[in-house]
């Protein structure tokens, strides 16, 4: 027991050291491409840290959304025509060090403040016990899904609205010149990987009811399939070619979430207060459509706006 605890201590120190070094290297590196690579690796190490801190939902989301999609989005900004892009700091070294000292003082102040209130957290804002007590009435047995889709469904609705707002912004900018190369080799990979990704998305979505997983992770997997199709040369990345279908898919998650909420309000249940007997089915319906919307939104975000044919 003691030896095992000691091993955890070593592992914690190692993980934190690697994480912090990667973050520093990603911020400080003068080569932009290297900085992006380091940021992707940073995201993957962060996924390990989430797993270590008993947060498997976040580990899944980080690996798929944070490191995977975030990395793909970053790489899409690299230009094909230039091989190396260097970023030098325009400021004087004294300014760089001065700001460094300043942010460290700020960090110390935040740490001091946080650690002085941390002992009271257990009594004041900890809601874990309340979630456990209500879990049986939520329609799902996984606490994180229960919080996301039932107890704090408002937050999730607004989050989907943020996603929708972002894609409106991206589409409003029109067509962006694509920076990535279409690889013929990808088309062979896509043939067997895309069906697998769709299958996995379905499983992760279904599993979210009782174990780590859910709409966000499943949506990210769908987006992965979309990006793969785009890189394999499919100009629409597997998305519908008709405009209204794309629009419908993008608003489906937020729209149905909102309609279910308003419908329940009209039924006399209160906004997003699911009747206990049907809670599971409402949650599943909302999550399914949210998965489609998230997948389409993230794929379109990678493509950087309206595909050229559609724009014409």
């Amino acid at each position: 027991m003691n030896l095992l605890d000691g091993l955890w201590g070593v592992l914690d120190l190692l993980l934190v050291a690697v994480l912090l070094l990667l973050a520093m290297a990603a911020v400080l590196s003068s080569d932009r491409r290297r900085s992006m690579m380091l940021f992707i690796v940073f995201g993957l190490v962060l996924a390990l840290v989430w797993a270590r801190l008993h947060a498997p939902d976040i580990a899944l989301a980080e690996a798929a959304i944070g490191a995977g999609l975030g990395g793909a989005l970053l790489m899409a900004t690299l230009r094909r025509d230039t091989h190396q892009q260097t970023d030098q700091f325009p400021q004087h070294p004294v300014v760089l060090w001065g700001v460094g000292v300043l942010v460290m003082v700020l960090g110390t102040a935040i740490a001091w403040g946080l650690f002085s209130v941390l002992p009271t957290v257990e009594q004041t804002w900890r809601k874990g016990a309340a979630v456990d007590a209500q879990l049986a009435f939520s329609g799902v047995s996984h606490p994180v899904t229960a919080v996301l889709l039932n107890f704090r469904a408002w937050d999730t609705l607004l989050e989907l609205a943020v996603l929708l707002a972002a894609i409106f912004g991206i589409r409003a900018l029109g067509y962006v010149r694509s920076a990535y190369v279409t690889e013929v080799a990808f088309s062979q990979l896509a043939v067997w990987l895309v069906p697998l990704l769709i299958l996995m998305a379905g499983y992760v979505l279904w599993a979210g009811a009782h174990s780590p997983g859910g709409a966000f992770q499943a949506g990210a997997l769908l987006a992965g399939a979309g990006i793969l199709l785009r890189l394999a040369g499919y100009s629409h990345a597997g998305l519908p070619t008709t405009r209204w279908l794309v629009r419908l898919g993008l608003v489906a998650g937020t729209g149905v979430f909102l309609l279910v909420g308003l419908g329940l309000l009209g039924w006399g249940q209160g906004f997003l207060h699911y009747p206990i007997a049907y809670a599971k089915w409402w949650i599943l319906l909302i999550e399914m459509l949210a998965t489609v919307s998230i997948g389409m939104t993230l794929t379109l975000a990678f493509m950087g706006g309206i595909p050229q044919k559609e724009a014409a």
């Binding site: 989301a61 944070g66 989050e159 996603l163 991206i170 993230l298 975000a301 950087g304």
Partner: peptide, 14 residues
């Protein structure tokens, strides 16, 4: 995480 990635996507397209 999802809000951050959508804000990042919008910023990168801009």
């Amino acid at each position: 995480i999802v809000v951050a990635v959508s804000a990042t996507a919008l910023a990168l397209v801009i």
